[in-house]
Amino acid sequence: MNDTTVRTPFSPERVALLARNRLLEDLSPFLIALGALAGLNVLSILLGGAAFLNHPSRHSGESGWAFLIWLGGVLLAGRAFSQMHNGRGGSDWILLPATSFEKYAAAFVSYVVVYPLAAALAASGLSAILEGLAALLKASPGVVFNPLAGLDEGSVFGYLFFVTASLAASARFGKLSLVKAGALFSAWAAFLGFLFVLGMLLSTPEGREALGNRHFSYRFRPDFDPASEPVLIWVFRAWGWFSWAAAAVYGYFRVAEKEAVDEVQ
């Protein structure tokens, strides 16, 4: 970085440096997790005759690799800003010569773009190696993980949403960010669910009657299928994207507020 770059309010070079540092710091836990998965699957081949992660679930038809990549992204993003909340370490974070936006953008790029690509590549490679080992040991054949199979808008959005929400949780809470955010999210979801059911009941005479009579058994529109209601699908989709954008904006502003207001210990 040169003198000119350091004077610019936004520098892609600083974002790249921050993202690189973040990914290098996450490399050790990532490799440990990968090693543990490799070890467990080798044991599974030796003792159970199959690499369990290469065998799709009977219920969903999907292997566990995709879930593990999702989980890894959520866990890493959930501690993305932990240093910011940590007393003296937080001082170093705040006084590091980069803007709040660059620091947030680096975390976003790291866990939304770079990590899933790297993890998918690593998972595919490990899956192929395990499959080769299984063939060598004449174990039950499985399926090599293909990250592109089953990749659709829903799964991409699901990853994007949960990782962005985890970043927001990490920006908000110093410790146990995912647990606290999960508790808040559950309470909010329960509240929304309650409002939804109440609204559905109040919208029909039978529903209103059911509200006042606890012995009244009532099924609201038994033929109702949300998947066949295009308006409802669009409402849910819009709500999902709105929630994602809100989580991203909230996470960024928490980081910016910390930098703008917090005094160094």
């Binding site: 970085m1 770059t5 350091v6 001082s91 590091l96």
Partner: peptide
Amino acid sequence: FVPEDPWGPALSPETWLERYGAFRPA
């Protein structure tokens, strides 16, 4: 600013220089 009791990153000085030295052009 160097505080009286500075925080130590979980990095060696050499690695710290590689990763964070770049933020200070001079």
